[in-house]
Amino acid sequence: MKFLVSFVVLLGLCAAAGAPAPARAQAPRNLVKAELKSDLRPGAQSFLVGVHLQIEPSWHIYWKYPGDAGMATSVKWKLPDGFAVSELMWPTPIGFEQAGQIQGFGYEDEVVLLARVTPLPGWAKPAMIEAEVRWLACETTCVPGKASLQLQVDPAGAADPADGELLAQWLARVPIPADSPENPAKVRVTTMGLDYRIELSGIGAEHVQCLLAPADGLSIVNNEVAGLKVHIVLHAMEGSKPSNQPSEAVIAWTESGKPHAVSVQLGRQ
């Protein structure tokens, strides 16, 4: 490891001796492999598309709210005329804390970011779905990456069943809205300005976690979980315009070994 560090420093010095060296910013190897997959079945009214990101061991990429540092992974879709795509669905991330109490949220090993595509009614010819994906991969250093992905979808054909299964597995990890009938927990939210108390009941939850994505212009002052109670305090950054978007708290827990996650929208009051 020491050798590696000296080597990197040496590389840095060599690069610094010459003109600006863009090669330094490049990854020595492919840290993230990106593929576009679907669960299309013939005659389906809509289908899922997923960006499957496989991440080099010990590296991570980021959630929609990266935390104190990092950069959100982004997906920009390009669809045929008349096709519609949902908002991106993000599976529950993991939290990591780096030295200096720097909190981050993201994914290790692999993740599938999902969206639901509704094709043009009466769609009859194969069509191309494109995604421009950007990420920041970090370990002790960070390396940005991007990929332009394409997937041909055929209304008469069907996706590989293995892809459909993979997408279903990751869809199950996307938090469900707290008011969804599928949510096994009763969720009570008390709001006072930017102070929120969330209480879960009716479940035997273990390992309760709260992953918090504050709206633009807000920062996190407190995010504390005690049993089935979460206490969140946000801070409005001075001079910033209040955002119309609510903040989002993803509350994740396990019950009898099974992971659950619900999404709670936090507005201002």
Binding site: I102, C138, D216
Partner: peptide, 17 residues
């Protein structure tokens, strides 16, 4: 007076010891 004295910073994490 500075009208926007506080914003969200972005970038790599500071590589503390």
């Amino acid at each position: 007076t500075v009208t926007q004295p506080e914003t969200r910073s972005y970038g790599c994490s500071v590589k503390y010891k």
